Computed example of a mutant assay.
Amino acid sequence: MTSPSGGSDDGSAAQPRRLVCACCGTSADALTDGLPLTWTYSVEDGARRHYCQICSRENLRSIEGRLDSDWW
């Protein structure tokens, strides 16, 4: 039997995922399927790239303008 979320029902806790900022290399653990609340991500050339809070804030206009990170 599976749980409603589609995961296993074996009672084990979810394992954190390690995220690394594509700009500065800062890392963080994500305990859920999503990103930490202050992080953003972008899909560039088919690859997902995650950005930490500091890099996201510093490059907000470029992110909103959908510019690839190469232009930052």
Rank of each mutant, 00 (worst) to 15 (best):
M1Q: 10
T2D: 14
T2W: 11
S3R: 14
S3H: 11
S5F: 03
S5G: 05
S5V: 05
S5Q: 10
G6I: 03
G6H: 02
G7S: 07
G7M: 11
S8V: 13
S8I: 13
D10K: 15
D10A: 13
G11N: 04
S12A: 13
A13P: 07
A13T: 12
A14M: 08
Q15R: 11
P16E: 04
P16F: 03
R18V: 12
V20N: 08
C21H: 00
A22Q: 02
C23Y: 04
C23M: 09
C23N: 05
C23V: 10
C24H: 01
C24I: 02
C24N: 03
G25Q: 02
T26E: 04
S27V: 03
S27Q: 05
S27N: 04
D29E: 13
A30N: 01
D33Y: 07
G34W: 08
L35K: 03
P36A: 06
L37Q: 14
L37P: 10
L37Y: 11
T38N: 15
W39Y: 07
Y41C: 15
Y41E: 07
S42E: 00
S42Q: 07
V43A: 06
V43I: 13
V43F: 07
V43R: 09
V43N: 08
V43E: 05
E44P: 01
E44F: 01
D45V: 03
R48Q: 08
R48V: 08
R49G: 00
H50V: 07
H50T: 07
Y51M: 01
Y51I: 01
Y51C: 00
C52G: 01
I54Y: 14
C55N: 01
C55A: 06
S56H: 15
S56Q: 08
S56V: 10
R57Q: 14
R57A: 15
R57C: 12
R57G: 15
R57L: 15
E58L: 14
N59C: 05
L60R: 12
L60A: 14
L60S: 11
R61K: 09
S62Q: 14
S62A: 15
S62N: 13
S62D: 13
S62L: 11
I63W: 01
I63L: 09
I63M: 09
E64D: 08
E64K: 12
R66H: 06
L67S: 05
L67H: 12
D68G: 12
D68M: 09
S69Y: 02
D70N: 07
W71Y: 14
W71A: 14
